[in-house]
Amino acid sequence: MPLFSFAKKKVKSIPLTQNQDRGILVFENTSEVIRAENILKTEGLKIRVMGPPPEIRTGCDLVIEFPLIEKLYILRKLDEVRVKPIQVVPVSNTLLKPVDLFHIKDFGNYIMIRAANMKLTIDKETMIIVNISDGGCPDVPYLASEMIGKHLSDAPSPRSIGHTLCGYALQLAYEEMQTRCSR
């Protein structure tokens, strides 16, 4: 067995949610969550977009979970680009739910991926996006008109043209579809 693969097996990554103090950033709206996520991921920070715990009654439907140890750095980075969370709170329970759970359905010539409340369907042979549905957000018709009929690799990413929770969910489905189609 090569030494590298042996060494690789010994390395255990610690999930973000375990053995680490965590906090959540609460934002006024989903656009800010998307902007903040882009910025913090670009900085290489281990963050996740989650559903908020029930005790958080303000803000939008998404929060960003982050390692508390990085709090000052994160707030500084967000301040630089004028994205200001309305709350920064430590996480004291395990009720957060990740929003990146996928449901995949094979329709023969087509495959659909649903992420949260959004469905993305493509033609398996041509990789053309044939349907975007559900959500109920005001930007869904726009997202659909911009993406349907285009090749998966040519379509604009929902992250770049969407502004709502639906756009965020569609981005997750889009990324999952790209991952699956590149295998």
């Binding site: 329709f107 087509y110 369907t121 033609d123 044939v130 349907n131 549905s133």
Partner: peptide, 11 residues
């Protein structure tokens, strides 16, 4: 429910 009507149309 969608996408089924769409897929039937395309077929």
């Amino acid at each position: 429910s969608c996408p089924q009507p769409v897929l039937m149309t395309l077929n």
